[in-house]
Every structure is written in C-alpha cells, then in structure tokens.
C-alpha cells in the first residue's frame, strides 16, 4: 500500500523522487522533445523539471491524483524560460555529462532521423500559435490532459485554457487550408525538413540564443 506518494514527495523522501522520475521522466522528455523539436534541449528540460520539482516539492497538494500534470506544468514553465531555470540550477546541471551526440544504438538513430521531419513540421505549425496557445495545445492534445487539469498545471483559469484551445484550433485550420491551397509537391518532405523560422515569441528563440555558446563547444 503506497502511503500517498504526494505526502512523501512533500516530505522530500528521496525514494519518492526516484519513483517519480522513473514513472514520469519519459513523458516529460517526450513533451519536451515535442515542444522544442530539439533532443539536446529536451534532455536539459527533463533534468531541470525534476530539479524544480524537488525545489517546489512543498507546494504539492495532498491527495492521490497522479503528479504527472504537475510535472508537465513545471516542464512547460521550464521550457518557457530554460535560461532562467538553468541559472537557478546551474550547479546541479553542470555536473551532468552532456548527452552523447550520437546515440548508442542504431535503432535509436533511425528513430530519431525518422522523427526529425515530423518534429520540424510540428514546430512550424506550433510557431503559428502564441505561446500560451502552444502550451495549452501540447498539454491537452498531445499529452491528453483535460482542460481543468491543464489549467491547474499552468496556473491559469479553465476558461483561459478553453479559449486558447479554440484559438489554436482556428490557427491550425487556417494553416491547413493554406497548405492545401499550395501546389501539391511543395507540401512534401522538402519543406518539412526545413527548420522552422525562429518566431519572436517561440520558446525556441530565446533558448537558442541562450544556447549558442554550448553549440560552439560541441
């Protein structure tokens, strides 16, 4: 009988955090990859999310609900301003060896290559949305949170979530229509491989600037 994981997380029980990590790291990672379209950044976001979770553990409310939405909310905040989160956890982050630029297993390489186009295409679509819409969209549609849970995870009103979703829907429809209006072969891979243009408000843009030094070192 699990004596409320939430209570143990609040109390700072290391085993509870190990459990939390094992259970949710892959989802946080998936969310991060899809939000940013960037594997390396996603790795950092996973670390930062759990470091933030540790820091904020006393804010976990009692109950039995899964902590996944809470973690996804933190991941979203971290993605929004990775530089700030990294500043906060500089010491801890700097101890983590950077991920291998080339994954160990051939399967993984193949999968990543296959994903890259899809991710880039999705980034392009996401960049048509405002940040808030993008956050709500990815949480509700891709991660399957309901509006109330997403609202709680993001610290906004349920109505806000709903209206952002509906704006996202409008934007996507417009985008789809525009795509359909294009000559057929310009829609295919050629365009999709392109990296999306960095849009002013996209979470990528600030981050990319912030990361430049790291890219140099690689």
């Amino acid at each position: 009988m699990e004596n409320s994981l939430r209570a143990r997380v609040r109390a700072g029980d290391p085993d509870a955090f190990r459990h939390l990590f094992d259970e949710h790291a892959s989802v946080v990672h998936r969310h991060a990859v899809r939000m940013t379209g960037n594997w390396v950044v996603a790795d950092d976001i996973v670390s930062l999310t759990f470091l933030e979770a540790w820091r904020l553990r006393e804010r976990v409310l009692p109950g039995d609900d899964s902590l996944r939405p809470w973690l996804l909310g933190i991941a979203t905040n971290v993605t929004r301003n990775t530089a700030r989160a990294a500043r906060r956890h500089q010491a801890a982050l700097s101890r983590i060896p950077p991920p291998d630029p080339v994954p160990d297993f051939a399967d993984e390489v193949t999968q990543r290559l296959a994903d890259t186009e899809e991710l880039a295409a999705a980034q392009r679509a996401l960049s048509a949305m405002r940040r808030g819409e993008r956050e709500v969209f990815t949480l509700c549609v891709w991660e399957g949170l309901d509006a109330a849970t997403a609202a709680e995870a993001l610290g906004v009103a349920v109505g806000t979530v709903r209206s952002r979703l509906s704006r996202a829907r409008k934007r996507l429809r417009k985008l789809t229509e525009r795509e359909l209006g294009l000559p057929p072969d310009s829609r295919t891979e050629k365009r999709e491989v392109q990296r999306p243009a960095a849009v002013g408000q996209s979470p990528g843009s600030r981050h990319q600037a912030a990361r430049s030094t790291q890219e140099k070192k690689r």
Binding site: F21, A25, A42, P103, D115, L172, T176
Partner: peptide, 19 residues
C-alpha cells in the same frame, strides 16, 4: 489538425544518468 509528432524515447542509459 496537428498530430503529436514523432515517438521520442528517453534512452534507458540516459534515463539512468539523469536519474
């Protein structure tokens, strides 16, 4: 309208390192 892209997986060894 916009399906979730890719099937990103956190590699096991990386999972372990981060944990």
């Amino acid at each position: 309208l916009l399906p979730a892209p890719g099937r990103p997986v956190l590699a096991q060894d990386r999972h372990r390192v981060l944990r």
